[in-house]
């Protein structure tokens, strides 16, 4: 892909972060940490990689996406709205009574959401089912799924991986949002995951680790996956919880935060500053 296209994906990821912040700020609270850390992979998927038609969300030949860490739905909603699946105005209704945009991803309410998620561990299984069903029906669709690193505490994640590995679902690409933190604390203090790479590889996955904040690395990882037949794929996104949202990224406890539109717009301005300075998304922040 040409460099200016990567620049477009970077810009798309900035817009996803901006509208994720605004969506949550309008509600006043939400899962900003894990929503921020998936903005870049969503930009790559919806900005270039996935075969989709926002005007026809139920298109049978489309590629599928399951956000298994369903609490980070605001980032997906921002992405879908920016792609034109539904009006941008909906974003202001997050979590309000009667909204189409509930806190956790909901396939019945949100055009473009392929699977309802929230109770962790189930989305990856559904994504495996989707991939398997598409293969049975002779479609060449790809199925993508993001699991949280904390979500990998759930036994069901590993059941799903056994099934995907055994069935050699080579049109299934799993991303692990390795942002190092779960709700209560850092992963290794709650339940040390040891090596994600070793684990997924041993379950039969073609496994890579890329920088989760670099759209080009993510894009290239996906291309490499697509050129490797016979196995499901795992791309571990080395990232940071809250990344690109200045008031969140330096906070230890940033799973769920309350903030208002004023704080939100300050964070948006910082995103634009970094973008102009060429240091987006992390600025000088190191993790």
């Amino acid at each position: 892909m040409a460099p200016d296209n990567f620049e477009k994906l970077r810009r798309f990821s900035a817009d996803i972060r901006i509208w994720t912040i605004r969506t949550i700020a309008h509600a006043g609270y939400g899962h900003i940490g894990g929503a921020a850390s998936i903005a870049d992979v969503l930009a790559v998927l919806y900005g270039d990689v996935m075969r989709i038609d926002p005007k026809n969300p139920g298109w049978e030949e489309r590629d599928w996406f399951v956000l298994s860490k369903g609490h980070c739905a605001p980032a997906l909603y921002a992405t879908l709205a920016l792609k034109g699946y539904f009006p941008m105005e909906w974003l202001k209704t997050l979590n309000q009574g009667g909204t189409n945009l509930p806190s956790h991803a909901d396939r019945r309410k949100v055009p473009g959401v392929d699977m309802t998620t929230g109770s962790l561990g189930q989305g990856i299984s559904a994504a495996v089912g989707i991939s398997w069903a598409n293969r049975l029906q002779g479609r060449d669709s790809w199925s993508y799924c993001i699991v949280g690193d904390g979500e990998c505490n759930e036994g069901q994640v590993w059941e799903a991986c056994q099934a995907a590995g055994h069935a050699k679902l080579d049109h299934f690409i799993l991303f692990v949002d390795w942002n190092k933190k779960q709700l209560d604390d850092r992963l290794e203090r709650i339940c040390d995951p040891l090596s994600f790479e070793d684990k997924f590889r041993s379950f039969g996955f073609h496994t890579q680790t890329v920088r989760g904040d670099r759209v080009q690395e993510i894009w290239e990882g996906i291309q490499q996956a697509k050129q490797t037949p016979g196995r499901p794929h795992c791309i571990i996104l080395d990232t940071c919880k809250g990344l690109g949202v200045d008031f969140a990224e330096r906070q230890d406890f940033n799973h769920y935060m309350s903030f208002d539109t004023e704080q939100g717009e300050t964070a948006v301005a910082e995103i634009e500053r970094r973008y102009q300075a060429g240091t987006y998304p992390g600025g000088d922040f190191q993790w």
Binding site: Q122, S125, A126, I130, S131, A133, Q162
Partner: peptide, 15 residues
Amino acid sequence: ANACSMAAGMSAAGL
């Protein structure tokens, strides 16, 4: 647990 959620995914994809 996996089989049940997988079944749901398969249903979503038309089976």
